[in-house]
């Protein structure tokens, strides 16, 4: 097996919250390990405050990590490019934002942003750029007549395709997509998700899909990582992690997302919010967990391999 394109090792992100005499921190991510291989879609799932968007921003280098390594093809870019991402890094790693109503400049035709990206990275000249933009639109299923339209004249699904076309223009190896379908109507979501699948399968691009939508994640991703309070709870093949989760938090998330089984069954876990400011020791989910034991609040959970490629961060998990 070849090395993954992207590896996070022990990534930690914290935001100072002020306070005196002792400074308080919001711990957005802690000791996160994550791999994304070429041609692979990895879903990063969790609720608000889980740190999933923060990690997406770390990978896109829009957010600094205070600990850990960010390896692209084995090179720790936090060390090799400490001042921020180089143009070369930004060419290899592109970001698609959540809101296609906010991420496109309203005063320019939608082709403009794609053209700028092509010219900036030297992928086209003034003479060829129009043709390249039209080809980019065609690749994401948009008619070439749309390049001269302004964002207001496009639907949400079309706008998100423009945003994806802009990211793809520079032929990135890794695409970080932060909730790319959450603003879209359900009737067009599937098309956008399928587009990511095709990019992974046909063009071997790696995709880190940040989402709170388990059903979407299950649909297109190869592997999934479940986060809670900035920590990995479970990671492994998407089909198993999202449909038959082992970690109590992942089970709560799956039960809450389950559809077509009525609103009869109570949720397997107590209400609560993730402890991210001055987090207590131990497992962050312990206070809500129906299966918690004293060890859970005493020490960090061990990483238990319930299958060779399926890791559960839980005191109660049994190794395979």
């Amino acid at each position: 097996m070849t090395a993954p394109l992207l590896s996070l090792r022990g990534i930690g992100v914290r935001f100072p919250q002020g306070g005196w005499p002792r400074h308080r921190f919001l711990r957005a991510a802690h000791a996160v390990d994550l791999d994304v291989g070429r041609g692979e879609i990895v879903a990063l799932v969790g609720e608000s405050g889980s740190g999933k968007s923060t990690l997406g921003r770390v990978v896109a280098r829009l957010q600094e990590a205070h600990a850990g390594q960010l390896l692209l093809d084995g090179v720790d870019v936090l060390r090799s490019e400490p001042g921020g991402a180089s143009l070369a890094y930004r060419r290899r790693v592109q970001l698609v934002f959540q809101d296609p109503f906010a991420s496109l400049n309203p005063v320019h035709p939608v082709g403009h942003g794609v053209a700028r990206s092509l010219l900036l990275h030297g992928h086209a000249t003034a003479a060829t750029v129009r043709e390249r933009v039209q080809a980019g639109f065609a690749a994401v299923g948009l008619g070439k007549e749309l390049v001269d339209r302004h964002p207001y004249a496009l639907s949400g699904g079309q706008r998100q395709r423009v945003a994806i076309a802009r990211a793809l223009a520079v032929e990135p190896e890794l695409i970080v997509a932060d909730e790319p379908t959450s603003m879209l109507d359900v009737s067009v979501r599937t098309d956008v998700l399928r587009l990511f699948r095709r990019l992974a399968d046909a063009e071997s691009r790696a995709v880190l899909l940040v989402t709170h939508d388990l059903a979407s994640a299950r649909l297109v991703s190869d592997r999934a990582v479940v986060l809670y309070a900035g920590r990995v709870m479970e990671s492994g093949p998407a089909a198993r992690v999202l449909a038959e989760p082992r970690h109590p938090y992942a089970r709560l998330l799956a039960a809450a997302s389950r559809r077509h089984d009525g609103l009869a069954a109570p949720l397997p876990g107590r209400p609560g919010t993730p402890p991210v400011v001055d987090p207590p020791p131990g497992c962050p989910f312990a206070a809500r967990c129906p299966e918690a034991i004293p060890a859970c609040t005493a020490a960090d959970a061990p990483v238990v391999a319930v299958a060779p490629d399926h890791l559960v961060h839980c005191h109660r998990a049994e190794p395979a």
């Binding site: 639907s155 699904g157 079309q158 109507d185 359900v186 009737s187 067009v188 979501r189 599937t190 098309d191 399928r194 939508d213 059903a215 979407s216 299950r218 649909l219 999202l242 449909a243 038959e244 799956a254 389950r258 559809r259 077509h260 089984d261």
Partner: peptide, 24 residues
């Protein structure tokens, strides 16, 4: 029928969601 077909499948449901072509 199109809206229902566009829903993501429940776990264990062997069905791929299908988008509705065109724009609302």
């Amino acid at each position: 029928r199109g809206l229902l077909a566009a829903l993501p499948p429940a776990p264990g449901e062997a069905r791929l969601p299908v988008s509705i072509p065109g724009v609302a």
